[in-house]
C-alpha cells in the first residue's frame, strides 16, 4: 500500500458551529482504493468530518486536499471537485419530482457531461449494477427504503467519481433492507472504490474496511485495521463504545 496515491489529505481540520467546536483537530490521509470506516458515539463529529470532505460544511480551520485540490481554498472550483466525490445520505435525499432514472441522469445532463441518450444509457447501466433497472421509470415515493438507497448510490456514481462518502447509509432502513444496501457497498469496495463510511454496522466494518477510525468528542481516538480496533482496542473510550454496540 505504501506506493499508493493519497486521495484525501486532511491537516489539522477544525469545525465549529457557533460556539460549539465539533471537530477539534483532525489529520488523516486516505489512500486510493482504501475503505475507511468512521466509528464513534453520536455527536463525536463523524458526519461533520465526512461533510467537510466535500465542503457541505465549510471548515473553520485546517486544510483538506482532495485529488490534489485544496477544497478549503476559496479559489478552488468546489463544484468541479464535487463531481469527483459521490455522497450517499442517511435519508437518501432522492429527488421526488424525478423518476428513478431521472434522478441519476440529472447531474450528467445538467453538467453537460453527456447527452440525454448517453445519460439514460449509463443511468440504466448503473441501475443494473445496483439491481434497480426494473424500477427505472417509477418515482422514489413508490419504492422501499433499501431500494431508495441503492438508487441513491447509483445517482452518486453517475458522475463517475473516484471517492464515495457514505453518511450512515443504513441507519434509516428497516433491518431486513440493510443487507441489500451493504451488498452494493461491498461490491463497490471490491471494485477498488475509495470509500469513507460512517456506519454502525460492525459486521460491515470488520469485513470490508481497510482501516477503522474511532472518533470521540471531535478527536481521532485511535485507528487501525478492523481486527486491531474491534478485537483489541487500546483506548478506554473505544473499549467503552464497543462494549455498548457489540
Amino acid at each position: 500500500m505504501a506506493d499508493k496515491k493519497i486521495k484525501v489529505h486532511v491537516q489539522n481540520l477544525k469545525k465549529s458551529f457557533g460556539k460549539l467546536e465539533v471537530l477539534k483537530d483532525i489529520s488523516m490521509d486516505i489512500e486510493e482504493g482504501e475503505v475507511v470506516v468512521l466509528l464513534g458515539p453520536s455527536g463525536s463529529g463523524k458526519s461533520t468530518f465526512l461533510r467537510c470532505l466535500n465542503q457541505l460544511e465549510t471548515a473553520t480551520a485546517g486544510t483538506i486536499v482532495v485529488d490534489g485540490q485544496d477544497v478549503t481554498d476559496k479559489h478552488t472550483d468546489i463544484n468541479k471537485v464535487r463531481e469527483n466525490i459521490g455522497m450517499v445520505f442517511q435519508h437518501f435525499n432522492l429527488f421526488p419530482h424525478k423518476t428513478v432514472l431521472g434522478n441519476i441522469m440529472l447531474a450528467p445532463v445538467e453538467l453537460k457531461k453527456m447527452t440525454k441518450e448517453q445519460a439514460a444509457q449509463t443511468g440504466m447501466d448503473l441501475l443494473k449494477r445496483v439491481g434497480m433497472d426494473a424500477k427505472a421509470d417509477t418515482y422514489p415515493s413508490q419504492i422501499s427504503g433499501g431500494q431508495k438507497q441503492r438508487v441513491a448510490i447509483a445517482r452518486a456514481l453517475a458522475m463517475n467519481p473516484d471517492i464515495m462518502l457514505f453518511d450512515e447509509p443504513t441507519s434509516a432502513l428497516d433491518p431486513e433492507m440493510v443487507g441489500e444496501v451493504l451488498a452494493v457497498m461491498k461490491k463497490l469496495a471490491a471494485d477498488g472504490m475509495t470509500m469513507v463510511v460512517v456506519t454502525h454496522e460492525m459486521g460491515f466494518a470488520r469485513e470490508v474496511a481497510d482501516r477503522i477510525v474511532f472518533m470521540d468528542a471531535g478527536y481521532i481516538v485511535e485507528q487501525g485495521a478492523p481486527e486491531e480496533i474491534i478485537d483489541h482496542p487500546k483506548e478506554e473510550r473505544t473499549i467503552d463504545f464497543l462494549n455498548k454496540v457489540l
Binding site: 466535500n54 457541505l56 463544484n79 468541479k80 464535487r82 463531481e83 466525490i85 459521490g86 455522497m87 445520505f89 435519508h91 435525499n93 432522492l94 429527488f95 440529472l106 447531474a107 445538467e110 453538467l111 441513491a152 445517482r155 452518486a156 453517475a158 458522475m159
Partner: peptide
C-alpha cells in the same frame, strides 16, 4: 427538505442550478 439542496450540490451542481432544477 434541505437534504435536497445538499444532494444536488454534492453532485457538483451550482447553487443556482440546484435551485432551478431541484
Amino acid at each position: 427538505d434541505k437534504g435536497q439542496m445538499e444532494a444536488s450540490r454534492s453532485l457538483g451542481l451550482s447553487y443556482g442550478k440546484s435551485m432551478r432544477k431541484v
